[in-house]
Design a protein around this nucleic acid. Structure first.
Length: 577
RNA sequence: CGGAACGUAGCUCAGCUUGGCAGAGCACCAGCUUUGGGAGCUGGAUGUCGCAGGUUCGAAUCCUGUCGUUCCGACCA
């Protein structure tokens, strides 16, 4: 490809709309342009890179035995009603009406469609296992699209769905996808970490997310030094144990009220004159769950993890109680709440409070707290659960070494789904006993467009993108510093361009009539892995400048360029796999 | 959906406080010059000041509404 013949609208200045680096580079390097919020056009360089990622995904899915199909984006609402997600996912569903006023759904994902397909076509255990995937545009009515391709209204996803007869075979299908994902992200030049994940509203009980550590990540992940334990913070646990042991309640001092004028926070109570450490306080949170109220207790040093709470309650339909609800129920304002003497509410307490004694908590009366609380004796705890968010530095549940926490971008997610969709959409099969049973499903997603942006987020410098060879729009950029027709520099550039192209090496020839500075800057901004610069100065010395985007400049004789490039690429590819 | 900021040339932005000719740099077009790190000179083209309404002799500027964009929270690939 000749630069003068393609379309690479690079920007010298940063577009005002882009906040994070990878988004700015996508725009500045001329890879994408925005149509509207969360909607982007891929320009030639962006599309080439996107296709590279898709190809890697496709090759690894095929290698793992998955079968590529293509399902419609436009879907009948009936299947969404059958699965129940017409209601539960209504906030993200885009809907459209045709000219007869009939309603359609723009698919945010394809469990319903694929399950319906299988229910009609697969009847016997002999036809299983099967794993069907496609790479296709998804639509989600995101409340807040942002960060370019990171969270878009329309994006490209690879989604795969496995169907098995037995639990063991379902685990095998899951494992194959796990391994395929590890290979995919490694080949994309991404440092992606598989972490244990919360399975969320999708249902199911076993899931991993593939996370790319990045400052701009929207998730927090927790892991130990050798990464033998890694989990999403919504799922993570630590080896931190309650410091208390069962005491003899009879010998402990009784609960005592004491005045705390103006104190509304855990923080204030840790200061003089009270000096109560946060761990010795009980944090009391009132939550509205459907029609009832639930009191949640944690130590004052802990943060409630709402994802864990959803698991504990079996629903994501909850919210903190309103101040009026709190006052009606506990007769005090937030900041003065406590569980002592509460017997009309369900009380769920975090494990770290187990056997707690000598604790301090709100008295359910403004400006008063109570101390000497012995939790088993003084509070009617209904259930003990894990409600807290793990903190950095706590001991790893596996190795006991300190845990680290970092933000990360979720590029892939694999679930064991179970039979939720096969039951609601009738994907029943006959097993080898001749009995009907629902297929056991798994689903496996990769945000292809998000992966592309994550690659940029992880591979850039002040000058621009540094594409890994595997996903670069072009591998080699030949920069002709003098592009006057038929001048020696351009002649040599043309020769090298022909040679490289004949060897199937993807090469772009910068033949524009631009000053050298413009060409150097553009090639670095767009980020081609290897640049060959030819100009009167190098020509006079009989060399070509060989400059890897992330390496030192070398001087190579024109006749040796082809072999040098070939072996450099081979080295890079070997290192990447 | 709640909170905040912003909307002026293709891009980045000034002008708005205190109402009075629509601006700069970059990009673009023509010519000359220049040619190893985003050149210089001369000339040129470029606007529904987001939109609608109001106040006013007069509105980019003040007021109201509305739409859009971005950021912070709840969702997720």
């Amino acid at each position: 490809m000749r630069w003068s013949q393609t379309f690479i609208p690079t920007l010298k200045e940063t577009p005002a709309e882009a906040e994070i680096l990878s988004h700015r580079l996508l725009l500045r390097a001329g890879l994408i342009r925005k149509l509207a919020g969360g909607l982007y056009t891929f320009l030639p360089m962006g599309l080439r890179a996107l296709h590279k990622v898709e190809t890697i995904v496709r090759e690894e899915m095929d290698r793992a035995g998955a079968l590529e199909i293509l399902m419609p984006a436009l879907q009948p609402p009936e299947i969404w009603k059958a699965s129940g997600r017409y209601e539960t996912a209504k906030d993200v569903l885009f809907k459209a009406r045709d000219k007869t006023r009939r309603e359609w759904v723009l698919g945010p994902t394809h469990e319903e469609v694929v399950t319906q397909l299988v229910s009609g076509e697969i009847n016997s255990y002999r036809q299983l296992p099967i794993n069907l995937y496609h790479i296709q545009t998804k639509f989600r009515d995101e409340i807040r699209p942002r960060f370019g391709l990171m969270r878009a209204r329309e994006f490209i996803m690879k989604d795969a769905y496995s169907f098995d007869v037995t639990e063991e075979s379902a685990v095998e299908s899951y494992q194959k996808m796990y391994e395929a994902y590890v290979r995919i992200f490694r080949r994309c030049g991404l440092d992606a970490l598989p972490v244990e994940a919360d399975s969320g509203v999708m249902g199911g009980n076993h899931s991993h997310e593939f996370m790319v550590p990045a400052e701009v990540g929207e998730n927090d992940i927790v892991y130990n030094a050798d990464k033998s334990y890694a989990a999403n913070v919504d799922k993570a646990v630590s080896a931190l144990k309650s410091p208390h042991s069962p005491g003899d309640a009879a010998t402990l001092p009784a609960v005592e009220r004491f005045p705390t004028p103006g104190v509304r926070t855990i923080e204030e109570l840790t200061k003089p004159p009270w000096n109560v450490p946060a761990r010795q306080q009980i944090k009391s949170l009132l939550y509205r769950v459907a029609s009832r109220l639930v009191l949640l207790l944690l130590t004052g040093a802990d943060r409630l993890n709402e994802a864990k709470l959803a698991g504990v309650l079996g629903t994501a339909e909850f919210r903190p109680a309103e101040p009026e609800e709190i006052r009606e129920t506990l007769e005090a304002d937030p900041g003065s709440l406590g569980g002592v003497g509460v017997d009309q509410l369900e009380i769920i307490a975090d494990h770290l409070l187990k056997n707690g004694q000598g604790l301090t908590t709100g008295a359910n009366e403004n400006d008063w707290h109570v101390r000497n609380v012995c939790i088993e004796r003084d509070i009617k705890v209904t259930r003990w659960e894990d409600l807290r968010t793990v903190g950095a530095g706590e001991p790893c549940p596996v190795t006991g070494t300190p845990l680290e926490m970092r933000p990360a971008i979720e590029v892939g997610h694999i679930f064991k789904l179970g039979t939720k969709y096969s039951e609601s959409l009738n994907a029943f099969i006959l097993n080898d006993q001749g009995q009907q049973q629902p297929a056991i499903m798994g689903c496996y997603g990769i945000g292809v467009t998000r992966t592309l942006q994550a690659i940029i987020e992880q591979n850039h410098d002040e000058q621009g993108i540094r594409w890994p060879v595997s996903v670069a729009p072009f591998t080699v950029c030949i920069t002709a510093l003098d592009a006057t027709p038929r001048c020696p520099s351009l002649e040599l550039a043309e020769t090298l361009y022909r040679q490289l192209t004949e060897r199937q090496i993807e090469t772009i020839l910068d033949d524009r009539d631009e000053r050298p500075g413009v060409k150097f800057n553009d090639s670095e901004l767009v980020g081609f892995p290897l640049r060959l610069a030819i100009g009167p100065r190098s020509l006079k010395r009989g060399i070509v400048e060989f400059k890897p985007r992330d390496g030192e400049l070398r001087e190579v004789k024109p006749e040796a360029v082809l072999e040098t490039v070939v072996s450099w690429i081979a080295e890079r590819q070997a290192a990447a796999i």
